[in-house]
């Protein structure tokens, strides 16, 4: 594993290894006098964020620092998409600065893959356009492992704007690879065309899809999508695809409610549901740090980097 671009690149064994190491990272740091490990001392991790995402950037930064890496936050307010420095020139700059790993968040799908052509260091995709967000999927799988005892054989409903969701895509590949039954639920306008080949069940009726689900993953839906006719109104969306208390009661007792954040309370998820003990939303944030530690460790100690 040289880079982490998407979960589709991982074999099942590799994915399991990441989750195992995630557990080990959590155990290694939790309750210690010095919550810091020296594994990546002297290595430089660059956070290259072309989209504002304080939560993801902070999570990667914390993970890298817990492993004693030097972290550089490269301010990339503009990209070649909006006439700033070209991604290639930025990559050459980071290369010249000796970055061992670059964590990239970019509005253009495929930007991390392009970056691997211009850089020697490891590239970690922290979200590219509507393509992939592998560490989010890994932390979701890890959360299920912790809360449900595993992923294999569990049924997971992913609900909402699948079309524009990199989280949904990366989760579909990862969870199905780990043996889960994945259901995609949303209005037909927000499901991609031609996904008959995906290893999922597709549904348009949320109530029906919640029955027997072990986990339900609510995706953020932007209100502005109503302007592009993806759905008539925010109210109608919430009525058809929002997770409220009535729907929560349709889930089995052990089922968990997940959300990658940031949430639109009252839109895809009711405030009372988001705050219920069955919601794993803050736990997901905590687990994100362990997953990112595991990924950084695995990528930077594989004997392939400089």
């Amino acid at each position: 594993m040289r880079h982490l671009l998407d979960t589709s690149d991982l074999s099942r064994e590799e994915a399991e290894l990441v989750l195992d190491v995630t557990q080990q990272m959590a155990d290694a740091v939790t309750g210690r006098e010095v919550p810091k490990l020296p594994a990546l001392r002297g290595r430089t991790v660059v956070n290259l964020f072309y989209e504002d995402s304080t939560r993801t950037r902070t999570s990667f930064e914390t993970a890298a620092k817990r492993l004693s890496a030097d972290v550089v936050n490269f301010a990339a307010k503009t990209s070649s998409v909006n006439k700033g420095e070209s991604l290639r020139d930025t990559a050459l700059t980071l290369q010249a600065m000796g970055a061992d790993a670059v964590v990239i968040r970019h509005p253009a799908a495929g930007a991390p893959q392009r970056l691997t052509e211009w850089l020697d260091g490891a590239v970690l995709n922290a979200g590219d356009g509507t393509h992939a967000h592998p560490t989010q999927a890994l932390l979701d799988a890890y959360t299920m492992r912790r809360r449900l005892g595993g992923v294999e054989g569990r049924t997971v409903a992913i609900v909402g704007d699948i079309l524009h969701s990199r989280v949904a895509r990366s989760n579909v590949w990862l969870l199905s690879k780990l043996g889960a039954n994945v259901r995609l639920v949303g209005p037909p306008t927000l499901l991609p065309k031609d996904i008959d080949g995906w290893p999922v069940e597709i549904g348009y009726d949320l109530d029906a899809s919640l029955k027997g689900a072990d986990a339900v993953m609510m995706l953020r839906v932007q209100r502005e999508r109503q302007n592009a006719a993806f759905f008539p109104t925010a109210n109608e969306y919430a009525r058809l695809y929002g997770l409220d208390e009535r729907r929560l009661a349709l889930l089995p007792d052990h089922a968990i409610v997940m959300h990658p954040g940031p949430m639109n309370r009252g839109m895809e998820i009711a405030a009372t549901v988001a705050d219920s003990p069955r919601a794993t939303i803050t736990e997901q944030v905590t687990n994100g740090v362990w997953v990112r530690m595991a990924v950084l460790y695995l990528l930077l100690t594989n004997g392939e980097t400089r």
């Binding site: 290894l17 195992d20 190491v21 080990q24 290694a28 594994a39 290595r43 930077l300 100690t301």
Partner: peptide, 18 residues
């Protein structure tokens, strides 16, 4: 494992429990 001085050079090592 995480304290080894050859992490950079050698192939990946699994972590053990402490």
């Amino acid at each position: 494992t995480l304290y080894r001085d050859d992490l950079r050079r050698n192939a990946l090592r699994a972590l053990g429990p402490t």
